[in-house]
Design a protein around this nucleic acid. Sequence first.
DNA 1: ATAGGGTTAG
Length: 618
Amino acid sequence: MSSTILFTTPPIATTNRSSLPPPSLAAATTTTKRHHPLPPDTLTLLIDKSKSVSQLLQIHASLIRHSLDQHPILNFKLQRSYSSLGLLNYSVLLFNRTHNPSVYFYTAIIHSHAVNSLHEQALEFYIQMLTHGVEPNEFTLSAVLKSCPLTPGQALHSQAVKFGFDSNTYVRTALLDVYARGGDVLSAQQLFDTMPEKSLVSLTAMITCYAKHGNVDSARLLFDGMVERDVVCWNVMIHGYTQHGRPNEALVLFRKMLTVKVKPNEVTLLSVLSACGQLGALESGKWVHSYIENNRIQVNVHLGTALIDMYSKCGSLDDARLVFDQIKDKDVVAWNSMIAGYAMHGFGQDALQLFNNMSPMRLHPTDITFIGILSACANAGLISEGWSFFHSMKDEYGIEPKIEHYGCMVNLLSRAGHLEEAYELVKKMKIDPDPVIWGTLLGACRLYGNIALGEEIVEFLVSQNLANSGTYILLSNIYAAAGNWDGVARVRSMMIDNGVQKEPGCSSIEVNNKVHEFLAGDLKHPKSNEIYMMLEEINGWLKAYGYTPQMDTVLQDIGHSEKQRSLEVHSEKLAIAFGLISTQPETTIKIVKNLRVLQFAFTSPIHPMYMGGEFQEI
DNA sequence: ATAGGGTTAG
């Protein structure tokens, strides 16, 4: 940065009319009609009211013409306006032409850089200030701490203590934020706990810190103890739930926010839409969409992308496309969401067509684009296209494939039965394969009855200590599919020996805008009794339809009592039963299981689509 | 005479 050099250049004399204004200012000067200086407070007002660059330039020119270009407040105001219009370089120029800038001006220029994440320059101005003997104050410290990284932040912390500003609420909050963003939760917490006065903002900063680092419950505890809450802290709390796989709690909190009449803004809606998508909660998602329309909130590219994502995850591709077509100035993120939406529901051709329309729009695909494209190829069984995209990623677009891209390719090859080729690719990878990749391969081994490869992979995983419950279950399923009951028994004893537990499945259903979640064998729902009565009824219907339950071979614990076994009910059965007792007959019931959307239309007492623990999608 | 500066979400 040249600011240091500029600053130490001998100041230009106030009366020196030949001092050149910034380049494009010369033109503006000629259009200035006023020849008599306005009083400073009128000019102050004029600057504040200026909304365009040209207006500002005219005023600036006028200041120079009337030798007011060293006026501290006018320059300060001008600087603010330049910065807020994004003309940071004009701000710096103005600053550098101002003799002996005051602590106010320093603070403002530091702040202007800090809000634009130019913390290095902000820090440079701060150091300049110290070397020029201008004393910082609380305002300066909080400005320079904004978006400051941990290492310089710690040094500034010492400065704050030295100057005695560290107990000031603003400085303390900014410091807390520095440690929070740097991942030092304990220091942040200590600063918070010893804070003389906890403001709404400092509480929000601490909640943000907890939420960001996964401690959502601590965040909630603080949140619940607040005496006043603004939209920001509601947003932080809702977003915390959304980001940490607790979308239902996000929606519950959102409804609470509405009942206490805090007006949601765009940030709120982005989190809420994400939660709806995670839950497959189409009713709620549509409600949010109409809320946006009813409140005349502009569907900008961010909201639009969130809507596309929500509709795609809820299975409403047509609605997603409608939103997509309506977004002006679509960025690559919006395109990526739409491509991923098509890919996730098997509309491979639509995804590829969208991809082909990107370059005419001068948009460059990103690594995320290729995740969409490769999974689209996988879903559509386009093997050679998949390979060609995989190669062009690096060769044509310079994007290095990540683990997810390998995962897509393994999925693509495995599904098509090219198991050896998939395994070769995994062995050739420069990155360590993740559990998803192994799961894909093992799943394909079951599907194609390739016991030998399945065993080889599991042996490898066990030897590398990479096996988890899913690994064993998949291997057992491979044996079971081939009728190899010895194998099944062997896996079961391996699981018992290694203390492996099955991870519970989780299903959810949305009824009257509320999402109800169920784990396998769940008894926690308030309507549990009715649900289990309904289940009994369903079992009766199933028997009448000639259905015999398929025993889950691995997970059946022989020692279990009959009563307990009856409680081991698949989570989706519970969600279905609840759906049946809470909706009108003939209603389409949509269940989301482990993030997959399943939809059923029940016509007769029980629809034959339901086939014991496995549902077929309509 | 007085005027002007700061912290939390995305």
